[in-house]
Design a protein around this nucleic acid. Sequence first.
DNA 1: CGTATAGTTGACCTAATTCAAAAGACGTGG
DNA 2: CCACGTCTTTTGAATTAGGTCAACTATACG
Lengths: 220, 220
Amino acid sequence: MPKANVILSQCWPDVITKRYHDRQQVFLEGDEKRWAYLVEAGTVSLYKTLPDGKRQVFGFGFRHAIIGLEATETYSLSAQAIGITRLKCVPYTALCQLAAKDAAFALQLYEAVSAEVEATRDLVVILSQHGSTERVANFLLTLARRKFGSSAHLIALPMNRLDIADFLGMKIETVSRALAKLVQSELIEVLGRSKIQIKDMAGLQRLAGLANHVREVSNL
Amino acid sequence: MPKANVILSQCWPDVITKRYHDRQQVFLEGDEKRWAYLVEAGTVSLYKTLPDGKRQVFGFGFRHAIIGLEATETYSLSAQAIGITRLKCVPYTALCQLAAKDAAFALQLYEAVSAEVEATRDLVVILSQHGSTERVANFLLTLARRKFGSSAHLIALPMNRLDIADFLGMKIETVSRALAKLVQSELIEVLGRSKIQIKDMAGLQRLAGLANHVREVSNL
DNA sequence: CGTATAGTTGACCTAATTCAAAAGACGTGG
DNA sequence: CCACGTCTTTTGAATTAGGTCAACTATACG
């Protein structure tokens, strides 16, 4: 994740910072891609809205995440701020121009997008192979891992249940029931809307995916 | 897809060709990445085997597809030939060296992997948002589209039902039932194991995904 | 403290899985 | 070219996980 900085810092000094309030749209799928973004504070949800109105969230951009890196002329996802959010904006043309000249930089883009493919594949696995409780357990563990390598037993959930549901391909009621099951099994504790305490990390990991392939959904 | 050639032809002349028989392994997830491949003939399935033995297929590499482009030191997926298959092998180091020197080439890699992200996202949408019949309809249309832009009403299915099931996140029985439904609705005709005739393209498209976003699962 | 919004819980329903068995396809050797 | 055996695919019946609809509760915010 500090890699994000490495990448974008090379586009200095054309960088400006923008602020967004809770649920403010950053961009929409299909918009002309003017900027790539680095999340400085807050969270961004990345999603597609389907023709029938359903929504699929592909990931959450936390601090240090870069957004909008794919090589497309328009954004391939929509992005919405979750909570008060601050984003560094890098002009996409600057990024492209640099990449066209500097092979090392272009390779970094290539690597960054490769990581994105991997993350998306992990999501595919979650969606098609895990049951609802496993999905939620997995999700919580991913959030926990993000903080301090592995532990961090107190997890902040900036996103609401609907965001989680749309990410994990389930309904909010099912998310709720899954959390309830985890509570009942004494693996976690739910502290208000947006905090969760992990009470039995090992147990949660066991439940999450049989073997704990060390990566999992890393679509941060 | 001719883009594949554009990319790999630049790695000339270190290219050799290998032949594989039906179901022969090309490489396994985790193997050291020595080659990237261009499919010259036949088909390759790209998949992960999960700890519990389940399998998720991420796509099928048909003629002209490139395989193993992601920037990883080991293969992130396993690959298996479907039918007699011929692959052009490009040394991965050659590819990397070229990319390190040639920004334009590195950008091509970046673009190729970006397309892969998009394809994988389409798979996510299929898996989490579509019912079984829609999934199969969608799959058939993708295969059909691949041939001559849009039409090609006679589809060859080199892969078996299990491959399809593992791709679409369902059981083979469900694939079978979905096909049966499509037959009953007079949208397709099943001709033996590995051929399907589309009888009502428009109807199939209607069923496949409400709006026909022109791309869909393009994980060829 | 009261209201609006978000989350939870319960009862019922549906789509897909599971298990089991039948039918069909395909290659082989007669 | 047909008969056989194997493997793949299809079909059927029972089960189940998750979705749906509706009521209820908790939380946050003014």
